[in-house]
Simulated assay, not measured.
Amino acid sequence: MQHKLIIIMNTAAVVLFTLIGVLFTDRGSEVIMLLKCFALLRLVSGGLHLESSMGCAIVTAGTATLLSIINANTTWTISLTAISMLIVLKYAPSGIENQSRIPERFYPLLPVISFIIVASNLWFLSSMAAIAFFVQALTLVINEHFMKRG
């Protein structure tokens, strides 16, 4: 119950901070796309976890707001998508233990599911999705190479 409440409060904080950011950027639809894509991929791939929920909310909202002002052309969109596909195949899932309700027996499928989610952007060619997937994929690399102990 406490874990669910923390998730709800964290999500509400991300939305609130993002709405504040959107007031300055006027990029609401782009931020929404970034957050949706980031969250969807994060759900199945895992990634870096910050120590505090408030820190996570601030970093997530701030990053999404800043990234929403980037305009990637088709070449960059395809490139970021392809790089992200390779990263999630290699590193997903990462740091998902004790953070997800996905049973461990499904973990071997998560790189494939992550790959399919990212690869879908080759059809849609959304620059915001490409950016979100790339940043989320980078959190997998950071978690694996810089944050894991032992």
Rank of each mutant, 00 (worst) to 15 (best):
L86V: 15
E104P: 00
M85Q: 07
I102K: 03
G62W: 06
N71H: 07
P103R: 03
S52N: 06
Y91K: 02
L48M: 10
S100V: 01
G46K: 03
M54S: 12
P103C: 09
T74I: 14
S68T: 08
G28N: 08
G62T: 06
S29M: 15
L43R: 04
A82S: 15
A39F: 09
I83T: 11
A92S: 12
G55Y: 03
I58F: 15
N98C: 05
L89M: 14
E30V: 00
R101Y: 05
A64F: 02
L89F: 12
I32K: 05
V44N: 03
Q99P: 00
A39K: 00
T74F: 11
T75F: 15
K90R: 15
R105H: 09
T60L: 09
V44A: 03
R105D: 07
G47D: 02
V88P: 09
C37F: 13
D26L: 04
S68M: 11
P93S: 06
S68R: 09
S79Q: 07
L48W: 07
A57C: 03
L89P: 11
T74K: 14
E97P: 08
S84D: 08
L40K: 00
I102Q: 06
G95W: 01
T77W: 05
K36L: 15
S84I: 07
E51R: 14
L80E: 07
N73C: 02
